[in-house]
Amino acid sequence: MVVKFYWTALFLVGLVACNGGGTDEPEKTAEQLAIEELAGASGSETWTVRNGGSVSKDGTLQNDTYTDFEIRFISNNTGKNYLTENSNLLFDSNGNWAFEGENYDKIILSGIQPAANREISFTRTQNRLRLEWNVPAPQNARVSALAGFYVFDLVLME
Rank of each mutant, 00 (worst) to 15 (best):
M1V: 11
V2M: 06
V3K: 08
F5W: 07
F5C: 05
F5Q: 11
Y6M: 11
L10W: 06
F11L: 15
L12Q: 09
V13K: 05
V13W: 06
V13P: 00
G14T: 11
A17H: 01
C18D: 00
N19A: 15
N19P: 05
N19K: 14
G21E: 10
G22Q: 12
T23E: 13
E25Y: 03
P26F: 08
E27Q: 14
K28V: 04
K28F: 00
A30P: 00
A30F: 03
Q32K: 09
L33W: 00
A34I: 03
A34E: 02
I35D: 00
E36R: 07
E36V: 09
L38F: 04
L38A: 04
G40P: 08
S42K: 11
S42D: 14
E45H: 04
E45M: 08
R50V: 07
N51D: 11
N51S: 13
G52H: 03
G52V: 01
G53E: 02
G53Q: 03
S54K: 08
V55W: 02
V55T: 05
K57A: 07
D58V: 08
L61D: 15
Q62S: 04
N63V: 15
N63A: 13
D64A: 14
T65V: 09
Y66A: 03
T67Q: 15
I71M: 04
F73N: 02
F73E: 02
S75E: 05
N76K: 04
T78M: 06
T78A: 11
T78S: 09
G79D: 13
G79L: 10
E85Y: 09
N86D: 13
N86G: 06
S87N: 02
S87G: 15
L89D: 15
L90F: 05
L90H: 05
L90R: 01
F91D: 01
S93C: 01
N94D: 15
N94S: 15
N96G: 09
N96C: 01
N96V: 08
F99I: 04
F99W: 04
F99E: 03
E100S: 14
E100A: 11
G101L: 06
E102H: 09
E102W: 07
I107R: 01
L109V: 06
L109W: 00
S110L: 03
Q113V: 00
P114W: 01
A115F: 01
R118N: 07
R118E: 07
R118Y: 04
I120M: 12
T123L: 14
Q126L: 12
R128H: 15
L129Q: 01
L131H: 07
L131T: 05
L131I: 13
L131G: 04
E132N: 13
E132Y: 08
V135S: 07
V135I: 14
V135W: 06
P136R: 08
P136F: 12
P138Q: 12
P138D: 12
Q139D: 09
N140Q: 10
N140F: 11
V143D: 15
V143L: 15
A145H: 10
A147K: 13
Y150G: 07
V151P: 01
F152E: 02
D153E: 08
L154V: 05
V155G: 02
E158P: 05
